[in-house]
């Protein structure tokens, strides 16, 4: 028996089960985005020239910058868990906050990127867009729905990590009970992985 005897020690806890549950949820996310990647792949196959032409409208610099931001936010998220494992609560809270800041920076970038597109008249259903070829309309439709859904996940991630930061500060997540932070981390890394595929498939096909 464990000699650590704090009040919660008799409460049943299954961290492995919790993490496995989180992974199962991530698989449903994989299917959600996977379906969209299926649609993307078949339209790209059918409209290769149009996809290349349409992708020229996207700003590679914005995409690359957002990739770096998201990868770095994944790093700070992973480090925040290590910090907590090492019982460095303050550092963990700092790293979680930095993760949130990076996520917000990603969204600000996305805002400017989409604004520029809207300014050029490229948005779903716009006259400028409808004058273009079928393939280009499909490309931008997929661009908006896939990066949009991804952006929604980033916003959810901000809220989720924010709650974890609050929990950590209130000692509801501690160095020997941090499975919730780990699960939030798993979610955040999945959002990162999806972007790892979105970036080359939309920004780098010129």
């Amino acid at each position: 028996m464990s000699s650590i005897d704090h009040s919660a020690s008799h409460v049943h806890r299954d961290d492995v089960g919790s993490r496995l549950g989180m992974w199962l949820f991530l698989f449903t996310e994989l299917i959600l985005f996977g379906g969209m990647f299926l649609v993307y792949s078949i339209y790209r196959f059918n409209y290769q020239q149009e996809f290349h032409l349409a992708a020229k409208e996207l700003n590679t610099l914005f995409g690359a910058l957002n990739t770096i931001i998201l990868l770095t936010s994944s790093l700070t998220m992973a480090l925040s868990i290590t910090a907590l494992q090492k019982n460095q609560k303050g550092l963990s809270i700092f790293l979680q906050s930095v993760t949130i800041l990076f996520a917000l920076a990603f969204m600000v970038n996305k805002f400017f990127e989409w604004s520029a597109k809207f300014h050029h008249g490229i948005f779903p259903g716009s006259e400028t867009l409808l004058e273009k070829s079928n393939g280009e309309i499909l490309f931008f439709g997929l661009y908006y729905i896939m990066t949009g859904l991804h952006g929604l996940h980033v916003i959810i991630g901000v809220v989720l990590i924010g709650v974890m930061t609050y929990f950590t500060s209130k000692n509801r997540i501690t160095s020997d009970n941090y499975v919730r932070l780990e699960s939030a981390g798993l979610y955040w890394h999945l959002v990162d992985i999806i972007w790892i595929f979105l970036f080359p498939l939309f920004y780098l096909i010129t």
Binding site: D15, T82, Q85
Partner: peptide
């Protein structure tokens, strides 16, 4: 007895 399953397996965090 295993009713305090620690979050990660026995590896030191780095």
């Amino acid at each position: 007895m295993d009713n305090h399953s620690h979050s990660n397996n026995n590896h030191t965090p780095h």
